[in-house]
């Protein structure tokens, strides 16, 4: 955690604040979502390991408003031990918490005959374990506050284990299951948990080696809009573009004896 450089404006009855944390804010969806939530009136703590990107992002957001809407917090999601302290400091700086969004994620595209444990480990660490480290802490706060929302940007890739990327499928399937578990725990305490399944989004991920051809890919801005709508309407599970709901409905229901012979 960096030393506090500046601080968020105080809330008052006539200037109430909506407070959010975005983890993985400097990525494609994270950046777009940061802008979108700031526009919706949120005061944001932007968390990312990429210090170089985070500062300018905050500057760009704050430029558009009279008051500070976003401050950077540099942290690596795989430093699990630092999360409780980090979250506590952020909540103290924000003066409360209404929303936590986990957008951090990595993907590697292995060749069809490649088994790379290092890459699998990274994906599970960033996509799943980091999320659990942050969300466990946030869930505990929200549960005792009896309000709040937790948003996890999972993936349609978690709906089925596929030939192309078992490691990524695992990390996202685990994340989806974890979010469902949180939802079942927290709904009774007035806390809403949203699973976002964006499908393909035009971000740097699609430029990686071995990346698949973009199909029904949406812009990060469109994805951010979809996530904001889900937050606003307190949804539970959202496919960003409807077409992925139908694709995954079919995919989920293909019997295994056929699916294991297919190349998707």
């Amino acid at each position: 955690m960096p030393a506090k450089k500046s601080s968020f404006p105080s809330a008052s009855p006539l200037h109430p604040k909506l407070r959010g944390i975005i983890i993985g804010a400097s990525g494609g969806i994270g950046t777009a979502l940061s802008h979108r939530l700031a526009r919706a009136g949120y005061t944001l703590a932007l968390v990312d390991r990429n210090e170089q990107a985070l500062g300018p992002l905050c500057g760009e957001i704050n430029k558009g408003y009279e008051e500070t809407r976003a401050l950077p917090y540099v942290s690596n999601v795989t430093d699990y031990d630092t999360v409780p302290d980090a979250l506590r400091h952020i909540v103290a700086d924000l003066g409360g918490l209404d929303l936590l969004v986990y957008v951090a994620g990595v993907i590697y595209f292995p060749a069809i005959d490649e088994y790379n444990f290092d890459e699998d480990l990274k994906m599970v660490e960033v996509n799943l374990l980091g999320a659990m480290a942050w969300m466990n802490q946030a869930a505990s706060l929200f549960q005792s506050m009896k309000c709040g929302q937790i948003v996890g940007v999972s993936s349609v890739a978690g709906d089925r284990g596929r030939v192309g990327n078992p490691g990524y499928n695992t990390s996202k399937a685990g994340f989806t299951a974890y979010l469902e578990g949180l939802r079942n725990r927290l709904t009774r305490h007035g806390v809403n948990v949203i699973t976002i399944k964006p499908g393909m989004v035009k971000t740097e991920m699609l430029d990686l080696p071995n990346a698949p051809r973009a199909v029904f890919a949406v812009s990060p801005e469109k994805a951010a809009e979809g996530i904001w709508n889900a937050i606003r309407k307190r949804k539970q599970q959202v496919y960003i573009s409807g077409v992925w709901f139908w694709i995954m409905l079919v995919l989920r229901n293909i019997p295994s004896f056929i699916f294991r012979r297919m190349n998707i």
Binding site: G95, G96, S140, L141, S144, M145
Partner: peptide, 20 residues
């Protein structure tokens, strides 16, 4: 300990909430 002691508090006029 801090755990499980985080509660939303309000001002008397119920126009401001600040969890602590």
């Amino acid at each position: 300990t801090l755990e499980r002691n985080f509660f939303p508090l309000q001002n008397f006029g119920h126009s401001l909430t600040a969890p602590a």
